[in-house]
Design a binder for these strands. Structure first.
Length: 240
DNA sequence: AAACCCGTCAACCGCTTCCTG
DNA sequence: TCAGGAAGCGGTTGACGGGTT
């Protein structure tokens, strides 16, 4: 029988557990709780302590893959792609080990990126190598990898971060001068939640679809224990 | 315009490993 | 040394958006 049927988990299950995408409010609660614990918390008690109807596992995953400070979202650089491919050749599907070599990237994100982009690239590369054994394969490498960097659906008005922005999962996303009202009806200014944890920089660069953009902190609101902190990011400049 | 298909990715599930008493 | 609980890991699923027919 499955060992992971824990009493603590099942007790939570008796209440109505939420599943699926995390809401902004849930993210805020989780960040607030973790923030208040100063690096000392337990995933099993976290949902109850934070006022969340989630399992500890779900909280852990949300934190590690999305809310944790330093997490990079959006396109992988060519260097990152090359590193992943190289490490995958050496290590196989040991995503967490691979992730440990790519600062800011999570095992889940690398795994997804592999299955959706790099696996195809490797197959294509192998085909090319078989067809042109005498050619210099490095040229094909560069061409294929540079193609990987190009967004498939270029839209001048789209968010600079990943396509998940359109899934009603705003936390961690940064929009150009947008407010939540423009997106989901809330009157709050759009947030970049993970900055709650780090000392807030006056400005910071973020890699997007079209190059690195420097964002400048426009306003900051911290409601203390209730921990609702909002950051308005303004697009400062953009390099293509 | 509508239906369908496909790609993407956040989140879930179940198993394994690690830790602690 | 062992058992039980917590955390970690990787495969899979399902929702969603965009493209195609």
């Amino acid at each position: 029988m499955v060992k992971s049927t824990r009493s603590s988990v099942t007790s939570v299950m008796k209440t109505k557990l939420r599943k699926g995408a995390w809401s902004l409010e849930e993210d805020q609660k989780l960040i607030a709780y973790i923030h208040s614990r100063h690096g000392n918390w337990n995933w099993v008690v976290t949902p109850k302590a934070a006022g969340l109807l989630r399992t500890g596992k779900s909280c852990r995953l949300r934190w590690l893959n999305y809310l944790r400070p330093g997490i990079k979202h959006g396109n992988f650089s060519q260097e990152e792609d090359e590193t992943i491919i190289k490490l995958h050749q050496q290590l196989g599907n040991r995503w967490s080990t691979i992730a440990s070599r790519l600062p800011g990237r999570t095992d889940n994100e690398i795994k997804n990126h592999w299955h959706t982009h790099l696996k195809k690239y490797c197959l294509k590369k192998n085909n090319i190598l078989q067809e042109t054994e005498t050619d210099d394969p490095s040229e094909d490498d560069d061409l294929l990898l540079s193609n990987l960097q190009k967004p498939s659906n270029v839209n001048a008005n789209s968010s600079p971060s990943s396509s998940s922005s359109s899934r009603g999962d705003p936390a961690g996303e940064i929009y150009y001068n947008q407010t939540i009202e423009e997106n989901d009806g809330s009157s709050q200014t759009y947030v970049e939640l993970q900055r709650l944890w780090d000392p807030v920089p006056a400005s910071f660069p973020m890699e997007g679809l079209y190059g690195t953009t420097t964002y400048t902190l426009a306003s900051y609101y911290d409601a203390g224990d209730d921990v609702s902190a909002y950051l308005l990011m303004q697009q400062n400049e953009e390099s293509v």
